[in-house]
Amino acid sequence: MSGPAPAPDQPVQISAADARQFRYYDLVMAAFVAILLLSNIIGASKPSYIPLPGGGEWAFAAGVMFFPVSYIIGDILTEVYGYARARRVIWTGFAALAFMAFMAWVVVSLPPAKGWPGQESYEFVFGNSWRIVIASMLAFWAGEFANSYVLARMKLWTQGRHLWMRTIGSTIVGQGLDSLIFYPLAFYGLVGWPPEQLMQVALSQWLIKTLWEALLTPATYMVVTTLKRREGVDVFDDKTDFTPFQAHL
């Protein structure tokens, strides 16, 4: 898809199939994978809380503060570089999560040296059950692809207008799928997780992640505008094969 002749400092609207080399694509990919892994390693195991009026507490997973940033970067990838290149990044992140889970399992399973006191702590932090690992990976895969697909389709429908509507709308769908898949798969039927509490936690996490996206919209606008200008493109997925089951462009 091509637009009218651009001003000298404006990005050129092109089809995803016509785009080739980019200056910052690999850096955005690295940021996406880094935040994805760090939010799963550092934030996933720690619950925190917000004090409520009357002395109550509202608990939440600490990782929810940073994991939504991966969705924001996913929005930036799709908006600037197109769905096909975002798809490559999502598969890269999925492979990185799989390797992280395998590495954690190997390291935790190895017998500790005699006298080393850290094995119990290692098991507590990194010894997630395979049920939680699989639930996390499936939720990430489905949520990220839904997020990218909805944003790319909405960009075509709106002819590139209303970026805020596309980023928030795609996040509502993507984060909703992520929460809906992860919590039931990871915790349904376990002691201490009655169904009503499970759905309450899933809903609250969905709302928090979507709110983060909305609050960071100005930053998303700034990054998208800067990247489009410096890359000199504005990719539209009018000729893209939207199947998630491939990694080539």
Rank of each mutant, 00 (worst) to 15 (best):
A5S: 07
A7C: 04
A7N: 11
P8G: 03
P8V: 01
D9P: 03
D9A: 15
V12M: 12
I14R: 09
A16T: 07
A17S: 13
A17H: 06
D18H: 10
A19V: 13
Y24S: 05
Y25H: 11
Y25C: 07
D26T: 06
D26V: 03
V28K: 09
M29C: 13
A31Q: 09
N40P: 01
N40L: 04
N40D: 14
I41M: 04
G43Q: 06
S45W: 07
K46S: 12
P47R: 03
S48V: 00
S48L: 01
I50W: 12
L52P: 03
G54T: 10
G55R: 01
W58H: 02
F60G: 00
F60Q: 00
F60H: 01
A61L: 11
V64G: 03
F66W: 12
L77T: 04
L77E: 10
Y81L: 06
Y81K: 03
Y83A: 08
A86H: 04
R88H: 11
F94A: 15
F94K: 07
L97C: 12
L97M: 15
F99R: 03
M100P: 07
A101I: 14
M103E: 14
A104Y: 10
V107W: 14
V107F: 08
V108W: 05
S109M: 04
S109T: 05
L110D: 06
P112L: 15
P112G: 13
K114L: 06
K114F: 06
P117E: 13
P117M: 10
G118N: 07
Q119E: 12
E120A: 15
E120L: 08
E123N: 08
F124I: 05
V125N: 02
V125Y: 10
N128W: 12
N128I: 09
N128L: 09
W130D: 05
V133R: 08
A135R: 03
M137Y: 02
M154Q: 12
M154C: 08
K155M: 09
T158H: 12
Q159Y: 15
T167M: 11
I168M: 12
S170T: 08
I172Q: 07
G174V: 09
G174R: 11
G176R: 11
D178P: 09
S179K: 04
S179T: 13
F182W: 06
F182M: 06
Y183F: 15
Y183P: 02
L185M: 14
F187G: 02
G189I: 08
G189T: 04
L190S: 05
P194N: 09
P195W: 10
L198F: 03
A202G: 06
W206N: 11
I208H: 00
L211M: 10
L211R: 03
W212M: 07
A214K: 02
L215D: 04
L215E: 01
P218D: 11
P218F: 12
A219F: 13
T220M: 15
Y221G: 03
M222K: 12
M222H: 10
M222Y: 10
G232L: 09
G232I: 08
D234G: 05
D234A: 14
D237E: 07
T240F: 08
T240V: 14
D241W: 07
F242R: 03
A247S: 14
H248P: 00
L249G: 08
